[in-house]
């Protein structure tokens, strides 16, 4: 299976040969590809077998699994993304790419847990982005194989598997809930002014400042042992509000994550050394790349795009999401 970094000419030839591909790369190279059976998203950060890499020339390629019995590509807007689970095949999985900062990104992030059929079919994917130097100047994009990019549409590849195979979406999150305060919010959203800390209402921005909280550590919710992160984007003391990279949800109990000394060591302690050989597709978070300084550092040979958000059924932050195709 083709799964790694290639130049635009090689990828273009595969597309012209009829290969079905999932691609991640900078907009400049994805725009050069011919129409064909591929989906993609913009991002110039990658985890490679040689370590974290910034490249605006190479494309990360994932070939559709040989075992796929059917592949359907669909695009979704903010008004139609609620259909994503209903469109999934009876047995198989779906790969989703959503453009960062778009309405469909926000709609998915805020509402996916309420979508009809939520989590009934494996959904894995990522939020497309741009070079950090270009944030605010260039819009992240997705591609649905016809050569034109989209800044306001999610693209999804629904992949059907035979009855002898099953897809298993999993996450690796080195962060655990810390021992500190329990934090809740009164409403869902990408930002919050007020929070309840151990049941007491506070201005959340002031609370962060007064308690010296390291905002490189995410808020962590524990859903039956699944640690779900929400990362801090900024603490605005003037506006007295806190912005997040994923929504917080009303009623969920969060705690600030326990500090991690060394991301790479912690990752290696959590992950079986041969995991990379079994993964079909994975992605990891740009915040892990930045905060853990992953450029040039490898993670047990596990590869994939480094993204502006990860999807394992719902939007996640500071997490590696991956899918394994198993024999059953």
């Amino acid at each position: 299976m083709k799964q790694h970094m290639y130049d635009v000419k090689t990828v273009g030839q595969w597309i012209q040969n009829g290969e079905r591909l999932v691609l991640a790369g900078d907009e400049k190279v994805l725009n050069q590809l011919p129409p064909g059976s591929w989906i993609g998203g913009t991002i110039p950060y990658f985890m490679t077998v040689n370590g974290g890499l910034f490249s605006q020339e190479k494309i990360y390629v994932t070939q559709m699994p040989d075992s796929a019995t059917d592949v359907k590509v669909k695009t979704y807007t903010a008004d139609t993304i609620d259909q994503v689970y209903l469109d999934a095949p009876p047995n198989g999985f779906s790969i989703i790419i959503l453009p960062a900062f778009s309405k469909v990104h926000a709609a998915f992030a805020l509402n996916s847990p309420s979508f009809e059929g939520f989590a009934t079919s494996p959904l894995v994917g990522w939020i497309s982005g741009v070079s950090l130097d270009e944030v605010g100047q260039a819009a992240p994009k997705t591609y649905a194989g016809n050569g034109s990019s989209r800044a306001e549409q999610a693209v999804v590849c629904h992949i059907e598997l035979p009855p002898t195979k099953a897809a298993d979406v999993q996450i690796i999150n080195i962060f655990q809930q810390g021992d500190g305060d329990t934090i809740t919010f009164a409403s869902d959203g990408f930002s919050a002014e007020e929070a309840c800390v151990n049941g007491q209402p506070v201005n959340f921005a002031s609370y962060i400042q007064q308690n010296g909280i390291d905002t490189r550590l995410p808020l962590v919710a524990n859903l039956h042992g699944a640690m779900i992160n929400t990362s801090f984007q900024q603490v605005d003391l003037n506006a007295k509000k806190v912005d997040f990279y994923a929504p917080v949800f009303a009623g969920i109990e969060y705690r600030v994550a326990r500090p991690v000394d060394n991301y790479v060591n912690s990752f290696q302690m959590m992950v079986p050394t041969d995991l990379g050989k079994t993964i079909y597709f994975s992605c990891n978070c740009i915040l892990n790349y930045l905060y853990a300084d992953l450029e040039g550092k490898q993670l047990l040979g596990i590869t994939g795009p480094i993204t502006f958000g990860e999807v394992a059924y719902q939007l996640l932050n500071q997490t590696m999401a991956y899918v394994v195709i198993e024999d059953i």
Partner: peptide
């Protein structure tokens, strides 16, 4: 406090509890 294996079981049950 079951130690579920499947990620979606944990997420969907957490959501339904909420």
């Amino acid at each position: 406090e079951y130690a579920f294996e499947f990620l979606a079981t944990k997420i969907i049950l957490g959501r339904l509890n909420l």
